[in-house]
Design a binder for these strands. Structure first.
Lengths: 224, 224
DNA sequence: GCAGTTATAATAGCTTTACTATCATAAAGT
DNA sequence: ACTTTATGATAGTAAAGCTATTATAACTGC
């Protein structure tokens, strides 16, 4: 059985890491390392040690560590959209699609064996902790021109279209959807570190609580 | 007439910059420099050049540039809360308080002469672009223990209490308020750099549009 | 099976950042 | 006048973030 592979924007990398053994090791180990150290403490030297390679070799795959982060986050959004498609394609009612979609967004993430050498649980923690650093930079405009945020934009657009189908008069579908996509990450982070800023809590039911929160905000906001 | 001064958490600084001329110059110039360069490109060496002082002198005021950012952001939230108090203290109905509060949050920021040596317009841009970097770090828990996020938490708590007064049964007032406070920054950033993620637009009416967006989400979400 | 291309490794070095330490001097407080 | 304190001047260190060069191994086409 052939494993699925996402075709990501080619500006994200210099050499496609999915095509080579070294590339795969870079991806696999960087997810692990960034998750453990945080993006600030992470660098190519440590990554090279981890996979018994060299800094110079990694620089042949990624221009710098910021691009690598964009790659991982791009992969994450592709994966999330793939899962949303999986759970919505059989549905016709846009309301139902939105509900299923919010479930996928809020659910607990665990290893997806469809994709080797990516630990989705760790990657999700990375996205929660580092997502905003991907675009909150001075080069956001040139990065954007190169299409490096395509994954997020594509998902946002898809969901916003369902919103528009439910209520064509709602004026801010994109703003609402981007707010909710980011809130889903932020509230998990707050629950772990700044609990007075949320009501999600730390227990296993946090995913359900988050889903309910997102549902309430979405459907009440767009009601006709 | 005595200028107002906010008493910020003393762990934010080593020496209180509000008390000395050099401290004031550090604050004033750092707002300007971070706004122009972005937080990543900003450092104490450049700041020292800007105010004709030295790196070592600045290190006597702030442990590192991250603490300086936390200081500025802390100041910003104090200022916002001060303005919210200003426009809500005469109101009694919590719904009206919330409306006035969202107006302050969404409004265009301009220089407030109550506070010398702080350019609130530039500081607002800094908060829009750098806020998330304040807490998305590996040391978030120890920073939090020191009370470095007190400004944000205090404001969030105050607004969440009004929400609870409007609808005591709404289960997630803190989550909703923190989501909206962050959304107010994000949507402005998206409007400037990733416009497909929002519907706020670039014109002068963006502040009104943002206010309406926040109002819709808030009041529809908590309706009984 | 050889020639040529390409991927990786090994090593070195350079610039900038983020700090730390030391000493001199000027100003302020008592 | 004496001393504490703030600032400035200068130097230095370790790490980060690259870049460049050469060597070697592996694969590719003929």
């Amino acid at each position: 059985m052939p494993t699925l592979i996402f075709k990501l924007n080619s500006h994200l990398y210099l050499r496609d890491p999915q095509n080579t053994l070294l590339g795969q090791k870079i991806i696999e180990a960087s997810v692990d390392l960034i998750d453990r150290l945080g993006f600030e403490q992470f660098n190519f030297k440590k990554l090279a040690e981890e996979i018994d390679s060299t800094e110079a070799s990694i620089y042949r795959y990624f221009e710098n560590k910021h691009r690598l982060l964009l790659y991982l986050i791009g992969w994450y959004w592709s994966w999330l959209e793939y899962r949303i498609d999986l759970f919505t394609s059989s549905l016709t009612d846009p309301k139902e699609k939105l509900k299923a979609c919010l479930r996928v967004i809020a659910e607990k993430k665990s290893y997806d064996s469809t994709f080797e050498f990516i630990d989705e649980e760790a990657l999700h923690r990375i996205v929660v902790a580092e997502l905003d650093k991907a675009y909150l930079t001075k080069q956001v405009d040139s990065d954007n021109k190169e299409g490096l945020f395509g994954g997020f934009k594509s998902l946002c657009k898809k969901i916003a279209e369902w919103v528009a189908q439910v209520n064509p008069n709602y004026p801010s579908p994109h703003a609402l959807v981007s707010t909710l996509l980011l809130a889903a990450k932020q509230q998990i982070f707050f629950a772990d570190h700044l609990p007075t800023l949320t009501n999600i809590g730390k227990g296993e039911n946090r995913y359900l609580k988050l889903e309910i929160f997102l549902n309430t905000v979405l459907f009440n906001s767009i009601q006709e």
